[in-house]
Computed example of a mutant assay.
Amino acid sequence: MKTLVIIVGHGNYGTGIGSSLKLLAGNNSGVEFVDFLEEDSDISLKAKLIKILESSEVAQTLFVCDILGGTPFKTCVELSVEGENMEVTAGCNLGAILESILLKDTMDIKELANNIVSCTKETAVRFEKAKPAVVSVSDNSMEDGI
């Protein structure tokens, strides 16, 4: 199923994610990056998104927004309610976005939206430093090193 992924967020979030994705996976068709800049309004953002949707010939669309509740998220929700086969996600990390880009044409839109959120939850971690093990140097068996 042909899928369009639109990555949108505040400032240069969209094109910034696009730059990272290009470095990691090269150019991918069916992916658009939209920035919500300081000079934009919700109306101009919606116009940018509509222009992309109208020029695209896809069966389904996944919006990937930077943060829940922001103008990009609200605008994408509004478009998804008006349209069909559209899902909106927010707060997803780069690894999850990359995976979704690579899988986008293999899943139905609800499955893809669930997958990107699930992947974000599974890959968000905190590194915990371990205390170094204490080695006794009184044992002469270590005189020669390894």
Score class of each variant (00 low, 15 high):
13 Y>T: 05
30 G>S: 06
29 S>N: 06
85 N>D: 10
64 V>E: 07
30 G>K: 08
51 K>T: 15
101 I>N: 15
32 E>S: 15
37 L>R: 14
87 E>N: 03
67 I>M: 10
115 N>F: 15
79 L>F: 10
101 I>C: 15
68 L>R: 00
126 R>K: 13
81 V>Y: 04
124 A>V: 10
105 D>Q: 06
50 I>F: 04
17 I>E: 03
3 T>H: 00
94 L>N: 13
87 E>L: 01
25 A>P: 14
78 E>M: 07
126 R>L: 12
5 V>L: 15
116 I>L: 08
81 V>E: 11
25 A>Q: 13
17 I>V: 15
2 K>Q: 14
124 A>E: 02
80 S>D: 06
65 C>G: 11
56 S>G: 09
69 G>L: 11
39 E>G: 13
14 G>K: 11
35 D>V: 07
14 G>R: 09
53 L>I: 15
125 V>L: 15
6 I>W: 05
119 C>A: 12
52 I>R: 03
108 D>F: 00
68 L>S: 00
85 N>C: 06
50 I>Y: 04
64 V>L: 10
105 D>Y: 05
52 I>K: 11
99 E>W: 01
79 L>Y: 05
35 D>S: 07
47 A>S: 15
40 D>Q: 12
37 L>Q: 13
25 A>T: 14
110 K>L: 08
45 L>A: 07
41 S>P: 05
30 G>A: 07
86 M>W: 00
46 K>R: 07
73 F>Y: 13
85 N>T: 02
43 I>K: 04
